[in-house]
Amino acid sequence: MPDTAKPDSLKIRVLVRPKEGILDPQGEAVRGALPALGFDGVKTVHVGRLIEMEVESADEVDAMCRRLLANPTVEEYEWEVVS
């Protein structure tokens, strides 16, 4: 079987979430739902987005985040090379 994995491919994980102070109604709804299932003591919940990519180089990942993956007006992001 041919090995399709490129040796020079990097796995990137990008985490996008609502900026602090931005209303996160989705997080609020989840926070409200947890006690209904008997999970008490949940103070805050924020719902974000996880994006996984394989890229040849990490050089442009930050630009990808700024221009498309996150909307810097309302979201913040962080990314890491996983492997």
Partner: peptide, 17 residues
Amino acid sequence: LCEAHLLPGALLQNTHL
């Protein structure tokens, strides 16, 4: 138009979901 930066700001999910 907001995403294209032709207008300022952003449109978030309705607060009442």
